[in-house]
């Protein structure tokens, strides 16, 4: 898919998930980036995987029942604290 001999499509796709996850070292990340810049097919694949990952982030947020918020606030209200706060709460 590309004239570049730096990295093959097979190598780029093998590293793609780690590239998108930000898990590659700078040099390898740069190699993958250069391949994606030069290869339309692999770039499209990367865009697809990135977008799917973005859509997955959204399902980690859900509407909270008021009863859960009340329960959590009541729970926190029971946590022990010092009666007289010091100046520095860190």
């Amino acid at each position: 898919m590309t004239d570049s001999d730096d990295m093959t499509c097979e190598e780029a796709l093998r590293l793609l998930a780690e590239y998108i996850d930000g898990e590659l070292e700078d040099a390898t990340r740069g190699d993958v980036q250069r391949h994606l810049d030069a290869c339309r097919g692999c770039y499209s694949r990367a865009e697809f995987e990135r977008r799917l990952k973005t859509q997955l982030v959204a399902i980690g947020t859900a509407a909270v029942r008021p009863q859960l918020e009340e329960r959590v606030r009541a729970l926190i209200g029971q946590f022990t604290v010092a009666t007289r706060p010091p100046n520095d709460h860190e």
Partner: peptide, 12 residues
């Protein structure tokens, strides 16, 4: 670690 009312309010 001494936790204050302020800490708890921040936590909440």
């Amino acid at each position: 670690m001494v936790l204050t009312l302020e800490d708890r309010e921040w936590f909440e």
